[in-house]
Protein backbone atom coordinates (compact mmCIF):
# COMPACT_ATOMS: atom_id res chain seq x y z
CA UNK A 1 0.00 0.00 0.00
CA UNK A 2 2.88 2.37 0.82
CA UNK A 3 3.67 4.50 -2.23
CA UNK A 4 0.55 3.66 -4.22
CA UNK A 5 -1.39 6.46 -5.88
CA UNK A 6 -4.52 7.42 -3.94
CA UNK A 7 -6.96 10.28 -3.54
CA UNK A 8 -7.25 12.89 -0.78
CA UNK A 9 -7.10 11.68 2.82
CA UNK A 10 -10.71 11.33 4.06
CA UNK A 11 -10.92 13.44 7.20
CA UNK A 12 -14.18 12.18 8.69
CA UNK A 13 -13.90 10.06 11.82
CA UNK A 14 -16.13 8.23 14.26
CA UNK A 15 -16.12 7.31 17.91
CA UNK A 16 -16.02 3.62 18.57
CA UNK A 17 -19.11 1.50 19.16
CA UNK A 18 -19.24 -0.94 22.07
CA UNK A 19 -18.89 -3.94 19.77
CA UNK A 20 -15.77 -2.36 18.22
CA UNK A 21 -14.27 -1.72 21.65
CA UNK A 22 -14.99 -5.33 22.55
CA UNK A 23 -13.21 -6.58 19.43
CA UNK A 24 -10.25 -4.41 20.36
CA UNK A 25 -10.30 -5.78 23.92
CA UNK A 26 -10.53 -9.40 22.71
CA UNK A 27 -7.42 -8.90 20.59
CA UNK A 28 -5.50 -7.36 23.49
CA UNK A 29 -6.55 -10.07 25.94
CA UNK A 30 -6.04 -13.07 23.63
CA UNK A 31 -2.58 -11.87 22.62
CA UNK A 32 -1.62 -11.03 26.23
CA UNK A 33 -2.65 -14.57 27.21
CA UNK A 34 -0.49 -16.03 24.44
CA UNK A 35 -3.22 -17.54 22.25
CA UNK A 36 -1.94 -15.73 19.18
CA UNK A 37 0.12 -12.68 18.27
CA UNK A 38 -0.49 -9.36 16.59
CA UNK A 39 1.47 -10.78 13.67
CA UNK A 40 -1.04 -13.61 13.46
CA UNK A 41 -3.78 -10.98 13.31
CA UNK A 42 -1.96 -9.09 10.56
CA UNK A 43 -1.31 -12.27 8.58
CA UNK A 44 -5.01 -13.13 8.64
CA UNK A 45 -5.91 -9.54 7.67
CA UNK A 46 -3.51 -9.62 4.74
CA UNK A 47 -4.77 -13.02 3.61
CA UNK A 48 -8.28 -11.55 3.25
CA UNK A 49 -7.03 -9.61 0.25
CA UNK A 50 -7.72 -6.20 -1.18
CA UNK A 51 -11.48 -6.64 -1.51
CA UNK A 52 -11.90 -7.08 2.24
CA UNK A 53 -10.12 -3.78 2.83
CA UNK A 54 -12.51 -1.98 0.51
CA UNK A 55 -15.72 -3.72 1.54
CA UNK A 56 -15.48 -4.18 5.29
CA UNK A 57 -14.82 -1.83 8.17
CA UNK A 58 -11.70 -1.95 10.30
CA UNK A 59 -13.18 -3.90 13.20
CA UNK A 60 -15.18 -6.16 10.89
CA UNK A 61 -11.85 -7.24 9.45
CA UNK A 62 -10.39 -7.52 12.92
CA UNK A 63 -13.10 -9.81 14.27
CA UNK A 64 -12.73 -12.04 11.21
CA UNK A 65 -8.95 -12.18 11.73
CA UNK A 66 -9.29 -12.87 15.46
CA UNK A 67 -11.70 -15.69 14.71
CA UNK A 68 -9.31 -17.14 12.13
CA UNK A 69 -6.52 -17.23 14.71
CA UNK A 70 -8.71 -18.66 17.49
CA UNK A 71 -9.91 -21.44 15.20
CA UNK A 72 -6.30 -22.19 14.27
CA UNK A 73 -5.35 -22.20 17.95
CA UNK A 74 -8.07 -24.75 18.58
CA UNK A 75 -9.90 -22.70 21.23
CA UNK A 76 -13.29 -23.55 19.72
CA UNK A 77 -14.54 -25.25 16.59
CA UNK A 78 -16.31 -23.85 13.55
CA UNK A 79 -19.36 -25.89 14.51
CA UNK A 80 -19.43 -24.22 17.93
CA UNK A 81 -19.07 -20.80 16.35
CA UNK A 82 -21.80 -21.37 13.79
CA UNK A 83 -24.19 -22.74 16.38
CA UNK A 84 -23.56 -19.82 18.74
CA UNK A 85 -23.95 -17.22 15.98
CA UNK A 86 -27.35 -18.73 15.19
CA UNK A 87 -28.34 -18.49 18.86
CA UNK A 88 -27.13 -14.89 19.02
CA UNK A 89 -29.07 -13.88 15.92
CA UNK A 90 -32.26 -15.35 17.38
CA UNK A 91 -32.07 -13.15 20.48
CA UNK A 92 -33.04 -9.90 18.84
CA UNK A 93 -32.64 -7.48 15.98
CA UNK A 94 -30.16 -5.03 17.47
CA UNK A 95 -26.70 -5.43 18.97
CA UNK A 96 -28.04 -4.51 22.38
CA UNK A 97 -30.74 -7.18 22.26
CA UNK A 98 -28.45 -9.86 20.87
CA UNK A 99 -25.53 -9.26 23.23
CA UNK A 100 -27.82 -9.32 26.22
CA UNK A 101 -25.99 -6.44 27.82
Amino acid sequence: MGGDAAGPVPMEGHDFALWEKRVDALMALCSAKGHFTVDGLRRALEDMGEDAFENHSYYERWVAAINQNLIEAGLYTLEELGTRMQVVAARGRTYGDASGA
Binding site: F36, T37, V38, D39, G40, R42, R43, N69, A73
Partner: peptide, 8 residues
Amino acid sequence: NPEQLAYG
Protein backbone atom coordinates in the same frame (compact mmCIF):
# COMPACT_ATOMS: atom_id res chain seq x y z
CA ASN B 1 10.83 -12.74 14.10
CA PRO B 2 7.31 -11.75 12.90
CA GLU B 3 7.55 -14.17 9.97
CA GLN B 4 7.41 -17.00 12.55
CA LEU B 5 5.04 -15.32 15.01
CA ALA B 6 2.46 -14.81 12.26
CA TYR B 7 2.08 -18.57 11.86
CA GLY B 8 2.07 -19.44 15.56
